[in-house]
């Protein structure tokens, strides 16, 4: 059973967080080990397995980026470093060098601020792209588009994820500093 199936959902990317949360609570109650204290050992074990699966599914699907990562891996797509444009790698490398100056205390407050602004601006750009591509995926799914079209869209989603992983890493680094 995949994470979408746990929630009785098709493999859509546009999932309302309130709807998901409600379904999570309902299902949590349904599978709660407390309700199975008088059930057979096999049923108890099954309820426990479902609870664990449900928690994993919720943690993954409620996060818009992790949701896409999960979908593409479920569909057999993997991030591919060779497809990332060289110019982006160079830019990421340069930002990393600046970030290193921040970490060693060799950057002024202004420099840190402008670095943060730059990283956020790039992150926002990727978020917008990912959101648009996610919507396109849902529309393809709804309209019953042919497999070739869907595969093309999954490749596009994977590419955006690959590129944005560098920026997310930078952001984590900056905030962890």
């Amino acid at each position: 059973m995949d994470y979408f199936e746990v929630f009785g959902l098709p493999r859509v990317l546009g999932i309302e967080s309130a709807t998901l949360e409600r379904a999570f609570h309902d299902l949590s109650r349904k599978y709660h080990p407390d309700y199975f204290t008088t059930a057979s050992e096999a049923e108890q074990a099954q309820a426990l397995r479902m609870t664990a699966l449900l928690n994993d599914a919720y943690r993954t699907l409620r996060h818009p980026v992790r949701r896409v990562e999960y979908l593409v891996s479920l569909e057999g797509f993997k991030p591919d470093g060779s497809k990332v444009p060289k110019s982006l790698l160079m830019e990421v490398f340069e930002i990393n060098e600046k970030l290193e100056e921040v970490k060693t205390g060799n950057a002024s407050v202004e420099e840190i601020d402008s670095l943060r602004a730059l990283i956020h601006q790039k992150r926002d750009k990727f978020d917008t792209e990912l959101q648009a591509a996610s919507q396109e995926w849902d529309e393809l799914l709804k309209s019953g588009a042919p497999e070739a079209k869907r595969k093309e869209q999954l490749a596009k989603l994977t590419e955006i994820l690959s590129e944005s992983s560098y920026i997310r890493n930078l952001e984590r680094d900056l905030e962890g500093h």
Binding site: G81, L89, V92, Y166, R168, N169
Partner: peptide, 13 residues
Amino acid sequence: GLVGAPECGDVMK
């Protein structure tokens, strides 16, 4: 040579 690993965001020159 400049390469990167999108799985983890590492970059190597």
